[in-house]
Amino acid sequence: MKKLIASTALVATAAAGTTVLVAGPASADVERRGTCAGATYELGVDRERGGFEVDADVDGARVGSEWRVSIRHDGRVATSRVLRADGEGELDLDTFRGDTAGSDTFRLSVTPAGGRTCSTKVTVR
């Protein structure tokens, strides 16, 4: 019986340790989503190499439609382009930004041609 309890405790401890390891890296990633003109947009910010990998994705856009996709970092334009939705209705824009003093704020704005602008923001402390 003592062996069974010790084995169970060891397995539980190992499982708890695994959970902590899996949950740790995910907490560094921040994502925000929204919808615009029938499409879903997402802003992802990941800590990388002393800065941030910033990803903007649009899914479910009309194939061939044009969108202005802009990413701002602390109020300044980091990148802005007009993109055309691919054959699956997807658009993608990525950039790397250095870490600044204090918190860093990223804003994604997406605007379909002839439509209204939609946006979301992420603040990383």
Rank of each mutant, 00 (worst) to 15 (best):
M1P: 08
M1H: 02
K2Q: 13
K2L: 13
K3N: 11
K3P: 00
L4R: 04
I5A: 08
S7V: 08
T8G: 03
T8Y: 01
L10M: 08
V11I: 07
A12L: 14
T13D: 05
T13R: 04
T13G: 15
A14S: 09
A15I: 09
A16E: 02
G17H: 06
T18M: 09
V20R: 14
V20A: 11
V20D: 06
A23C: 07
A26R: 15
S27A: 07
S27L: 11
A28D: 15
A28V: 09
D29V: 08
V30D: 15
V30S: 15
R33C: 00
C36Y: 06
C36N: 02
A39L: 08
A39H: 12
A39T: 02
T40M: 03
Y41R: 02
Y41A: 06
E42W: 04
L43D: 06
G44S: 07
G44A: 04
G44Y: 08
V45P: 12
D46Y: 10
D46Q: 15
D46K: 13
D46P: 00
R47E: 12
E48D: 15
E48P: 13
G50W: 08
G51V: 01
G51C: 01
F52I: 11
E53A: 13
E53N: 10
E53W: 10
V54P: 05
A56E: 04
D57R: 15
D57M: 11
V58G: 01
D59H: 10
A61P: 02
R62F: 06
G64K: 04
G64F: 03
S65E: 12
E66F: 12
E66D: 14
W67Y: 13
R68D: 09
S70R: 14
S70L: 11
I71W: 01
R72K: 09
R76E: 03
R76F: 01
V77C: 05
V77T: 02
A78Y: 02
A78R: 12
T79N: 12
S80C: 03
R81G: 01
R81M: 10
R84Q: 05
A85N: 01
G87I: 00
G87P: 14
E88N: 12
L91Q: 05
L91S: 02
D92W: 00
D92A: 07
L93S: 07
L93H: 03
L93R: 10
L93G: 09
D94Y: 13
D94F: 10
T95N: 12
F96Y: 12
F96Q: 07
R97T: 06
G98S: 14
D99V: 08
D99F: 12
T100Q: 13
A101L: 10
A101C: 05
A101W: 07
D104I: 09
D104K: 11
T105Q: 11
F106G: 04
L108C: 00
L108E: 01
L108W: 02
L108A: 09
S109E: 13
P112S: 08
P112H: 11
A113P: 03
A113R: 14
A113W: 12
G114R: 07
G115R: 07
R116K: 04
R116A: 11
T117Q: 03
T117H: 09
T117C: 03
T117D: 10
T117V: 15
T120R: 05
T120P: 00
T120K: 02
K121G: 08
K121E: 15
K121Q: 14
K121N: 14
V122E: 12
T123Y: 07
T123E: 13
R125Q: 10
R125W: 09
R125N: 07
R125P: 00
